[in-house]
Amino acid sequence: MSNQNVTVEATLHHAPADNLVKRIWKTFWILLIITIVELALGLLLHKLDLPDNTKRMMIKGVIIILSLAKAYFIVAIFMHLGDEMSKMILSILIPLLLIIWVIVAFLIDGTAYKQMRNRYDKSFNTKTMNLPQKQAPKGKTVPLK
């Protein structure tokens, strides 16, 4: 019933058509380049197989930030959320802040569970804690004699 009354108010404010198409393709290239950089970093993680945990975490951190940038471009440009009224944007984004809390709470919980199991369940520890020096180097297995 409300469909008949719909004015095309949602399409009232728009930049000139040519600009929009240009903006879409520009966003596409940005997304593509970010994805390629992410892949390069992901492959770097795989190839280097860094024993240094901090360096690995730093690369992963960069990949996460790049993914968030991608998410921003998809939402703001492709989904046109950036063109909506700020109070509407906030009505969607503020509830999503809950997710930050859930991520922090649950990942801390997972870590705590791991530490607890390693401390009290020695079989879990020995089964899964293969020390690096015991491992053969990647791709090189000692030939069978």
Partner: peptide, 15 residues
């Protein structure tokens, strides 16, 4: 993520 964080080892996606 929670389960992954509770493990000492997780497979390498490259493998």
């Amino acid at each position: 993520g929670t389960i992954r964080f509770s493990q000492n080892y997780w497979p390498n996606p490259g493998d």
